[in-house]
Amino acid sequence: MSLRGLSPADIFERALAGERHALGRLITFVERDAAEAEIVAEMAHTRAGNAHVIGITGSPGSGKSTLTGQLVKLLGEAGKRAAVLAVDPSSPLTGGAILGDRVRMEDVASPDTFIRSMATRGHQGGLSLAVPGVVRLLDATGYDPIVIETVGVGQVEVDIAGTADTTVVVATPGMGDSVQANKAGLLELADLFVVNKADRPGASDVRRDLELMLDLSHLSGHDQRTGMRPEIVMTTALSGEGAPEMWDAIERHFTTIADNGQLTERRINRDVAEVRNRLMADLESRIDVMLTGNSLSGVAEVLDAVAGRSLSPTAAATQLAARISDL
């Protein structure tokens, strides 16, 4: 049905009733950080907190979107109402993006699956604000589990995958993935490793490397928080081999952290991180307005004083910090 003329609250009601275009529109509000986003977030937050959030990340070409597709297929067959958030980079030059992950996923997913493609949209931190908001909406409208798929290259993407309840890191033979994983800090982040393209030569080497790195890390690879050592699952995404084992391992992880209290702790941390990110973004934009606009009297004088070497930048910052709330 048409969404024409509806208030955000009306659209939210529609989304709750299962109307997918309504949910699609709410996500747009959040993604654009539009005025409606705050109203929507309010309504969503009270209803969220039920879904198992799974992050899947890996280098480009690791087959993670095919693997996500296989996972979604399994979930559909198990009668779950899953959602996927597929995050891909925007072009740094034009801000545009080509998002092509839906096709293979939709092809295998059950009709109940909700798939949303999302571009990183350049602005630093924007993504770390939008993704939790979108996940909250999916959660509030009854999707469970929610799979966030990101390219494990940029720090922001890695962080996003890392905020999940269960973070899966995909590695493949022949790409130096085990080394990359170590460098990018994915080793600390991973709750589960998947060695994809297990039919390729070198797959067992990748497994061995990962085991070795886990052995060498703190407490022989046991997560300090959970006491769990990340499992390593071998898959062949193209044929779907290993996908059930991957899902079992994901569930095992979830059960364990749910039982030992880690889950609650993680989610609290996640909420605090979101509040923090939101504050940071707010501060940042206020600072930008303060320093580049003329909206606040006296600022230009302070900056002139710094330029004239009569005031140190440190002292200037202290003076201006007191005025941030005036904006």
Binding site: T94, G95, G96, A97, I98, L99, G100, S117, A119
Partner: peptide, 16 residues
């Protein structure tokens, strides 16, 4: 066309 639109700053959901 997908590339043209991307280069014009749009987000293309490419189904193919």
């Amino acid at each position: 066309v997908a590339r043209i639109l991307r280069d014009a700053g749009m987000e293309v959901i490419y189904l193919g």
